[in-house]
Design a protein around this nucleic acid. Structure first.
Lengths: 201, 201
DNA sequence: CGACTAATGGAACTGGAGTACCGTTATGAC
DNA sequence: GTCATAACGGTACTCCAGTTCCATTAGTCG
């Protein structure tokens, strides 16, 4: 078979880009249940049939969007101290979640993940990647002797984000800079006290 | 007008109870996007028309379910030490989120809250009530001198739940007892270090 | 450049969610 | 018990999300 292959070329990629952007916009504007595939097609200036054929369901579309987002990584700043690094991380997350568009988008992504197993997997992979990007800060702090040996670096990074997501999704309290700074301070204090160390008998 | 009044009597209440139970079951089984009002009516053995007239949309139904859940409060244990109390709280939350039915239900409730403002308000009220129920533990610890004066009791309680919800919704890591105990220990350590105290200059 | 075909896009079709209408049931006042 | 009416429930209808079908476009290879 000479011509039996996939075509990753120009048009297909262009369509995907336009559709994912439209999907992100719609999720940010109206939340998960306003993600109508017909509307996505209209916004992306793409045939309705194409969207239904390539993605089929909102869940699959969101999963694809998450895969795309996972590939684009953000630059990480290095301040030299653990508190500085984690505060930088906390503020980055805080700015993202507090931003009207991005915050609404993340809410919708998480909502979509609760409805579909594959979407959930894509979401978990996204956070796994983001956590891995920041874990070295904590590992370095362990090396410097700021934290007890055996500290679970990834768990410390998760501990910084958790309170901010809790505010965004559950309590509804504002995700402001004060909350970010407190999350970073709390994570450092807990880690210093060995709360993320190896489980003792 | 002699007969111009609402009727909170038997049948209406019975219908509401049956519908809310069916809604909870469906949310737990299939997530938010399987919450079909027609299916709810069938399960509750209630006329389809009734469900559409009284609630109209899944979001409103979920909001009503949350209002119902907010009214039923859970007993709180008192262990005498802050770590003991917060560990009890963490394990209660952990058991709830790890339970197949309850965990799926909470995921769906949070997903629903991201799609509708009134539902979100109902969810926030629910957590506000739950947090208020446990805040006295922390306040007592401040009284006993275990924590610095000025510690935000409600924020400490939120800090216990946050990592568990983060696992449930974002990272996908297991919500197990070890995670619960770690969350409680971390919250105590951070609070002891003054991370939830009044903001300094 | 020209052939081949993967991928797109328009148009017509279909099924079921949501609505409207109206008769029936049961609650509460007297 | 009797009456008035709030609330329920069955049936028929509407409308649009999702599908199917086929013509058209545009990447890829020789």
């Amino acid at each position: 078979m000479t011509h039996d292959m996939v075509r990753p070329g120009g048009r297909t990629a262009r369509v995907r880009e336009a559709v994912l952007r439209a999907a992100g916009d719609l999720l940010a504007e109206g939340g998960l249940d306003h993600l109508d595939l017909g509307e996505v097609a209209r916004r992306a200036e793409v045939g309705r049939t194409t969207v239904y054929r390539r993605w089929g369901t909102p869940a699959v579309l969101v999963a694809d969007l998450l895969a795309e987002m996972a590939e684009t990584s953000l630059p990480r700043t290095e301040t030299g101290s653990l508190l500085g690094d984690l505060t930088a991380n906390a503020r980055l997350v805080q700015r993202t979640l507090a931003d009207p568009r991005q915050g609404a988008l993340f809410k919708a992504l998480i909502a979509a993940a609760t409805c579909d197993a594959r979407t959930a997997e894509a979401l978990h992979r996204f956070y796994e990647i983001r956590i891995d990007e920041w874990a070295p800060c904590v590992a370095a702090a362990v090396e410097r002797g700021e934290l007890p040996a055996g500290t679970d670096a990834r768990e410390v990074v998760r501990a910084v984000s958790a309170p901010l997501y809790y505010r965004l999704l559950a309590s509804g309290d504002p995700v402001d800079e004060a909350a970010a700074d407190r999350a970073a301070r709390a994570a450092v204090a807990a880690a210093t006290a060995g709360a993320y160390g190896p489980t003792r008998c």
